[in-house]
Design a protein around this nucleic acid. Structure first.
Lengths: 199, 199
DNA sequence: TTCCTTTACGTACGTTGTGTATGTAAAACT
DNA sequence: AGTTTTACATACACAACGTACGTAAAGGAA
């Protein structure tokens, strides 16, 4: 077989990540063989191993792209919420819920990723993309040192499980509204505690 | 090789689950081969496949035992908290945090289990053991229909991620105290909302 | 233009781990 | 005492990952 040009190579690389993204989303990491990815992308496993070091490496690339997509949605939503820190926090949280469920990647990001790439590394990746903004937003509302980290972790976990719960009720507007209200409830509690002069 | 008596067989079955529990906890599901489990238990893979249908089946047994252990700790703590529903809720949540981190099984229960046995089945298993009590406790404090399920999911997720965060700070008393205070904060917010006549 | 190096794959192979089929000897029941 | 069932061990088939090697064209250098 002949060889492709530089931009053709970039196209096959992207094609591999794209097909891997959808296959991982619908079948889960363990059930997807690299042979399946290669066949669906119209190449052989050799091509996959040329562009990505391992199955985990390909998966990591998929996760990174999804996280960037979600993070950008969160950031733009927070920016559009005006200058108020609390409003930005609320808007960002709701945007996260919508983005992560809309991406059809709930399974990849929230279920497979921690187990495959390890919770610590996943947490770090997550921290660099989404959780930073959550942490900064919480800090901007006045949360102090000792509670900042655990509250960040807990709110992040609450949003993740809310997204997983929502994913079980697809296209259910009332469920989505209830999730939004519940999320606002918890976020407001954190903000109120901060404003109350927590110690 | 000769054959063991009925109670000897039960002993080897328990021995297999025990060693599998510790191996899964320290290395993760994917990195543990059944050969490792069998060798550590002093048997061959044949014995493992005789007592458990598959690797997933063995893992499911491990998960079920861990969940029962955690659930019993939660229930007994809630029972000792007196008749007040809110006090029972708070005590149960704190007991969950301690039990799930103390079991050294955070990884198995919270990271591997959803990915290996599937989030839906894990959720159902979890619902039958721990989350039932959370849901009932929230209902007992007066949370109404629409918000009950999402709030249950979010508080459950918050506690899970709090446990994972705590597991990164082992034997750190101040971190544990901060996690407890943060958890109380969120739980109180839910209770307060319920008492305020939420809609 | 010609040569050389590097790139972008494909092909073939070794290795590991799962599951299954089969063998066997002792326990448990009749 | 004989038969069946149990509790394993052994051996094998198969799938999937990773690696080594081959190859032909792209992209520069002379």
């Amino acid at each position: 077989m002949p060889r492709a040009s530089a931009e053709d190579a970039a196209r096959t690389a992207r094609s591999i990540v794209d097909t891997a993204t959808s296959l991982f989303a619908e079948s889960g990491y363990a059930a997807v063989a690299l042979e399946d990815v290669a066949a669906a992308a119209g190449v052989t496993r050799g091509a996959v191993y040329h562009h990505y070091a391992s199955k985990r490496g390909l998966f990591t690339a998929v996760v990174a792209r999804l996280q960037e997509r979600v993070a950008s949605a969160v950031v733009s939503a927070a920016d559009q919420a005006g200058p108020d820190a609390a409003a930005q926090l609320r808007a960002g949280c709701l945007a996260f819920l919508d983005a992560v469920t809309d991406a059809a990647a709930v399974r990849t990001l929230l279920v497979d990723a921690p187990a495959v790439i390890g919770w610590a590394e996943w947490r770090q990746l997550d921290a660099e993309h989404s959780v930073v903004h959550l942490r900064e937003a919480l800090a901007a509302t006045g949360i102090t040192g000792a509670l900042l980290d655990p509250l960040t972790a807990m709110l992040s976990g609450a949003m993740n499980d809310a997204a997983l719960w929502l994913a079980e009720h697809p296209a259910d507007a009332t469920a989505r509204a209830a999730a939004h209200r519940s999320l606002d409830l918890l976020v407001d509690a954190a903000i109120a505690q901060a404003n109350a002069g927590d110690r």
